[in-house]
């Protein structure tokens, strides 16, 4: 089995994001970047499936500008075998990215594509679902467990009301939720080894995808600020304020 793991380069989760003063976007110049946390979970799961003897190869995919290979390298240092980079500086929408992934998944003959459920920049939560629709493959979104079996994969999904267990066929597309696993840290020898692992660079045309904007971002603004309220120093005072000032309890 071959596993394809698309990963995304995003602003590091620990960095406080700042909106640009001209409201055209958020400041990304000289800001620390990292692999999207949900993508790290996806890479980890692929590696665990390979280590269990159920997969022969883990291939990473990413689309973006010239620094994107750094993020692929992060996944290679975790243990993935090789990478595919579609290089472009254009703004990429989830549908476009899903089409690129579909082309690479077809070409590579991937039996399983594991993606993060959302990226922490755009918070779209769309790419995996779109990929499954484009490839007409079964979808397991928001999974907290996956086991390979004779019919494909037994999965557990995290849904709003609890858990849902499904049996999906193979090949399949799944997206990771938080509790699927805890991603490993890359060891120094593996970071060194990753430098020699191959990353193939392709253009959008190479994967047969035309980049066409379906949406236009008109403005990116600061959210309305919420002002700090008052300090209270005891239960009596708090309950009095909730009843008589905020009027949220009776």
């Amino acid at each position: 089995m071959k596993i394809l793991v698309p990963v995304k380069r995003v602003i590091d989760a620990n960095i406080r994001v700042r909106v640009k003063s001209d409201n055209s976007g958020v400041e990304t110049a000289n800001v620390k970047m990292a692999m999207n946390p949900f993508c790290e979970i996806a890479v980890e799961e692929a590696l665990r499936i390979k280590e269990a003897g159920d997969a022969e190869e883990v291939i990473l995919f990413s689309a973006g500008g010239e620094k994107t290979p750094e993020t692929i390298r992060t996944g290679l240092a975790m243990g993935a075998d090789r990478g595919v980079h579609v290089q472009t500086d254009e703004r990429l929408e989830p549908l476009t990215i899903a089409k690129m992934i579909a082309a690479v998944a077809e070409k590579e003959g991937a039996d399983l594509v594991i993606l993060g459920k959302q990226s922490i920049d755009g918070d779209n939560n769309q790419t995996g679902q779109m990929l499954a629709a484009i490839m007409k493959r079964p979808l397991g979104s928001y999974i907290s467990e996956i086991k390979k079996n004779a019919e494909g994969f037994a999965i557990t999904r995290e849904i709003d009301a609890g858990l849902e267990k499904l049996q999906i066929g193979s090949p399949a597309v799944v997206t990771t939720d938080l509790r699927l696993n805890e991603p490993r840290y890359a060891s120094l020898p593996n970071i060194m080894k990753a430098k020699k692992k191959p990353i193939e660079t392709l253009s959008p045309a190479d994967v047969g995808v035309e980049i066409k904007a379906r949406t236009e971002v008109l403005k990116v603004a600061e959210p309305p600020a919420r002002e700090a309220g008052v300090r209270v120093s005891g239960a009596g005072e708090l309950v009095d304020k909730l009843k008589n000032e905020a009027k949220v309890i009776s």
């Binding site: 920049d121 755009g122 918070d123 990116v220 603004a221 959210p223």
Partner: peptide
């Protein structure tokens, strides 16, 4: 977007 750190139109 960005966990509500920014609002996109």
């Amino acid at each position: 977007i960005y966990a509500g750190n920014a609002m996109e139109t």
